[in-house]
């Protein structure tokens, strides 16, 4: 999984049926110092993450399909958790 910061909500009304009713957020990967530096990408939100939250993102289609239980599902990134704290050995 990836550790990311939620940057902004994305509004998209005309879309593939699989995305109907799903909340879409723009997230950016963070580095070891929790600074958003990496690539920006979109993820479906299932945990009501808000702007600025540190989140855990699953970026692998097979896992996403199991999570939603839908076979034909063109979604590849899902926010699976809101992170409270990260401890890394100094």
């Amino acid at each position: 999984m990836k550790l990311c910061r939620v940057i902004a909500p994305v509004v998209a009304s005309v879309k593939h049926p699989a995305y109907e009713g799903l909340k879409l957020l723009l997230v950016q990967q963070v580095d070891a110092a929790m600074k958003s530096k990496g690539s920006e990408f979109l993820a479906v939100d299932r945990v009501q993450a808000g702007e600025g939250d540190l989140v855990l993102v699953l970026q692998e289609g097979n896992g996403v399909r199991q999570l939603f239980g839908i076979k034909k599902f063109p979604v590849r990134s899902v926010i699976v958790g809101i992170v409270d704290d990260v401890q890394t050995a100094r």
Partner: peptide, 11 residues
């Protein structure tokens, strides 16, 4: 595969 039109990103 293109799967959606974007209306807004943040504000």
């Amino acid at each position: 595969c293109i799967v959606g039109h974007v209306d807004m990103v943040g504000s």
